[in-house]
C-alpha cells in the first residue's frame, strides 16, 4: 500500500501548494482592489491628469494604454504568427533552427529597460520618430515577440500530428492544412498567449518611459484625422500610459493625492485586464466553434 500512501501525501502537498498560491494571488489582487476601488469614480476616469493639484483623472492615460496595446498587437501578432508557424511546421531540426530559437530566447530575456533604451536610440533619435505611441508600440513589439512566438509555436505543436496527417491525406496543401486545420485547433492556446502578453504590454512601464514618453498632451476625442497632432488616433503623438503614470505619480509627482491616484490607477489596470481576459476568452471560444466542427 506504500505507493498509495505516497499518492495521497503528494496529492495533499499539491493541494496545499495550490491553496498557498491562490491565497497569495487573492491577497495581492484584494489588496490592490481594496486600496484602489474606493478612489475610482466617474470623474477619475473621465478627467485629465493634474500635475500638482488634487482631483486629477486618468482619462488620457487609460486611452493611451489601450491604443498602445492595440497598435502593439497589430504589429507583433502577424510577425509572431509567421515566426511561430515557421518554427512549428517548417523549421528543420538543425543548428540554424537552434540559433533561431536561442536568439528568440535571448530577445525575451532582455531587460525591458534595455529594450526601452534601444528603442529610444533607434526609433526616437535615429529614425526621428520622436516620443510617440508608434515608438512605444515598436519597442513593446521587441519584447512581446519572443513570448508570443514561443507560445504560438507551442500551441501549434500541441495539435496532434494525426490532424495534420489527416489534412494532408485529404489532398490539402501544406498551407491549407496549417491555416484551416492546425491554426484553428491551436487557437485557444494562441489566444491565451496573446492575453498573457497583452497583460505584460499593459503593465509595462520601463520600456515606455523612453519611447512613448511620460507626458500626455491633451488630445481631442472628436478629431478622427489620424494625421492631425491633436487627434486622439495620431500614432505620432507622445503618450503616457497608465503604468507609466503610476510610476511617475509615485516617484516624482507633487500632487497631494498621489497615493489615491496610484492605487486607483492600479485597480483600474487590473479591472481592465480582467475585462480583457474574459472578453478574449469568450471571443476565442466563439471563433473556435465557428472555425472547427466542435460544438
Amino acid at each position: 500500500m506504500h505507493p498509495k500512501r505516497t499518492d495521497k501525501i503528494a496529492t495533499g502537498i499539491i493541494y496545499t501548494v495550490v491553496f498557498a498560491v491562490v491565497a497569495i494571488l487573492v491577497f495581492l489582487i484584494g489588496y490592490i482592489l481594496v486600496n484602489g476601488v474606493p478612489d475610482i469614480n466617474w470623474h477619475f476616469l473621465t478627467s485629465q491628469a493634474q500635475s500638482f493639484s488634487a482631483g486629477g483623472g486618468i482619462r488620457d492615460q487609460l486611452f493611451n494604454s489601450l491604443y498602445l496595446l492595440v497598435l502593439t498587437l497589430i504589429i507583433s501578432f502577424p510577425i509572431a504568427m509567421g515566426a511561430g508557424i515557421y518554427l512549428a511546421e517548417y523549421a528543420k531540426d538543425n543548428w540554424i533552427t537552434d540559433i533561431i530559437r536561442t536568439s528568440i530566447e535571448v530577445l525575451s530575456s532582455l531587460p525591458s529597460v534595455v529594450v526601452g533604451l534601444f528603442g529610444y536610440l533607434l526609433l526616437v533619435n535615429q529614425l526621428n520618430m520622436g516620443f510617440s505611441i508608434l515608438s512605444g508600440a515598436i519597442a513593446l513589439t521587441f519584447f512581446n515577440l519572443p513570448l508570443l512566438t514561443r507560445n504560438i509555436e507551442e500551441s501549434l505543436n500541441s495539435v496532434p500530428g494525426l490532424q495534420k496527417e489527416a489534412g494532408i491525406s485529404l489532398g490539402l496543401s501544406d498551407w491549407k492544412t496549417i491555416t484551416k486545420i492546425i491554426v484553428p485547433e491551436a487557437l485557444p492556446g494562441i489566444l491565451t498567449g496573446v492575453i498573457l502578453s497583452s497583460g505584460r504590454v499593459f503593465g509595462e512601464a520601463a520600456a515606455l518611459i523612453y519611447t512613448a514618453g511620460q507626458s500626455a498632451p491633451s488630445v481631442s476625442y472628436t478629431n478622427w484625422n489620424i494625421f492631425d497632432p491633436s487627434s486622439f488616433l495620431n500614432p505620432m503623438r507622445p503618450a503616457e500610459t497608465l503604468a507609466v503614470h503610476i510610476w511617475k505619480v509615485n516617484t516624482e509627482a507633487v500632487t497631494p493625492d498621489a497615493h489615491a491616484i496610484s492605487s486607483g490607477s492600479s485597480a483600474v489596470l487590473i479591472i481592465v485586464i480582467l475585462i480583457f481576459n474574459l472578453g478574449a476568452r469568450f471571443i476565442g471560444n466563439h471563433i473556435y466553434k465557428k472555425m472547427t466542427a466542435a460544438k
Binding site: 495550490v18 489596470l269 476568452r281
Partner: peptide, 19 residues
C-alpha cells in the same frame, strides 16, 4: 487558476514594487 494567473502577469512591476 488560469484567469488569476493571467491577471497576475498584468500587474505592472511598479505596483509590485510598491506593494
Amino acid at each position: 487558476l488560469q484567469p488569476v494567473i493571467e491577471l497576475l502577469v498584468g500587474i505592472p512591476s511598479v505596483v509590485y514594487g510598491f506593494i
